[in-house]
Design a protein around this nucleic acid. Sequence first.
DNA 1: CGGCTCATGTAAAAGCCGTTCACATGAGCT
DNA 2: AGCTCATGTGAACGGCTTTTACATGAGCCG
Lengths: 249, 249
Amino acid sequence: MSWRKERRAERGYHHGNLKEALLQAALGLIAEKGAAGFTFADAARMAGVSAAAPYRHFRDRDELLSSIAQRGFEQFEARLTAAWDDGRPDTVTAFERVGKAYLAFAREEPAFYNAMFESGLPVDANPALQAASERAFNIIRAAAERLAALAPPGTPRPPAMMMALHIWSMAHGVASLFSRGDAARRKLPMSPDELLEAEVLIYLRGLGFPTDRRPPAKGAEPPPVPPEASSGSGVPPGGTPGGPWGKPK
Amino acid sequence: MSWRKERRAERGYHHGNLKEALLQAALGLIAEKGAAGFTFADAARMAGVSAAAPYRHFRDRDELLSSIAQRGFEQFEARLTAAWDDGRPDTVTAFERVGKAYLAFAREEPAFYNAMFESGLPVDANPALQAASERAFNIIRAAAERLAALAPPGTPRPPAMMMALHIWSMAHGVASLFSRGDAARRKLPMSPDELLEAEVLIYLRGLGFPTDRRPPAKGAEPPPVPPEASSGSGVPPGGTPGGPWGKPK
DNA sequence: CGGCTCATGTAAAAGCCGTTCACATGAGCT
DNA sequence: AGCTCATGTGAACGGCTTTTACATGAGCCG
């Protein structure tokens, strides 16, 4: 009997790289229709195999989704790491860059972001997933730690973990509400990036950090703060004229 | 033929209040299994009617979900309004209360919250829904406006819209990441409520607001700030000893 | 009271999905 | 050449969504 039906004229009976093909197909579908609308059968179709084939590579639909989320967290971590760049050229600048990277990821990788944060996956039911998520968060945590160490003398040093959680929640809140798909249409007075930047700067200011960035004066990280310490709350007088959000009229 | 099958011995052929029953059933199911796992057929079953009956009251599954989200936004608005209480007893206290109400809603009404923010509904494809969401946000916006008007003299007055968006993103970020279901398990150094409160206080401090709350000294809202104005950035020296997050060791 | 009408509910059916199972194929090893 | 096992197939089951033709009975009108 002539088994060679048209369909798999190119690739023989065996696909050769189905697992990867399925992941890519799913990624595309999720970007299009969201994790909820994505269909296992659709991914199979798109890869040119029968509906049952995917089960040779993933226990079920959820496992495919988890795999994508896993990859997402890994790429996320990589991008945050790159953005942080170990705090160069100075801690605050690098910190801001991490925030922007967070938003950029949400914007540029909607499929990953969706799988990671909006798919309703039980993240902590999957140890590998949870670990990957933890690793990504640790970048922010490490950055916060470096930042906390910079607390101006005379200022109480804020707990780094708390700072990290705060920054994370800001970035996540802005990304979820304004930086993607639907709600992104809400007309804002500024871009999500600017919104987050201002938010973080105001926050850091509230902690007593100097937030008027300028090219660091030759390597020395802690800029010479005149130790009139213990009297004030540490917020410098000069700084950005008009606050971190620009000039008010 | 004996049509009277057991099933509807109690209520006759007509249910009498099916629409409401379906909404309630759906609410329960969403709370249990999330909006993704919720099933139109299940709701029908729970209400004791056939799978086709719901179509007499909702165009499709999505419309039921939208109805729930709609109600959710209305209740949300009501709770925020109550929490704001027109800024009593003082603006900052009331503002804090709004933040807590946001988290409380996310915690106590997981089904509504899920439908509103995590169901993947195209919010702005539905004008009624978008309007309801807008009305809820407007509470925060109004509160931010009142707060902005309190900017201490000598401090640049922050744009109220920006403040509102910032606060919203903080509340939403904390709620999404830490205050519900899965990720809530992440062991935090403090409760989500405390986390958000500290975050907002630090932020307000960054804007130059005095954040050491005390019973307002007899009605007068703007506490007499000695006008040594134009020199400092407005952050008061005294305030909460050790910052809004408690005492550092 | 009798009969009409229309909102509301039902069963059946079509089409899709996820998942499982027995079976087919062929790549790689011996 | 022959064996084996990972990988893919088709068929089938049950469940879900949605549509359709039909049943029921509450409320109104005469």
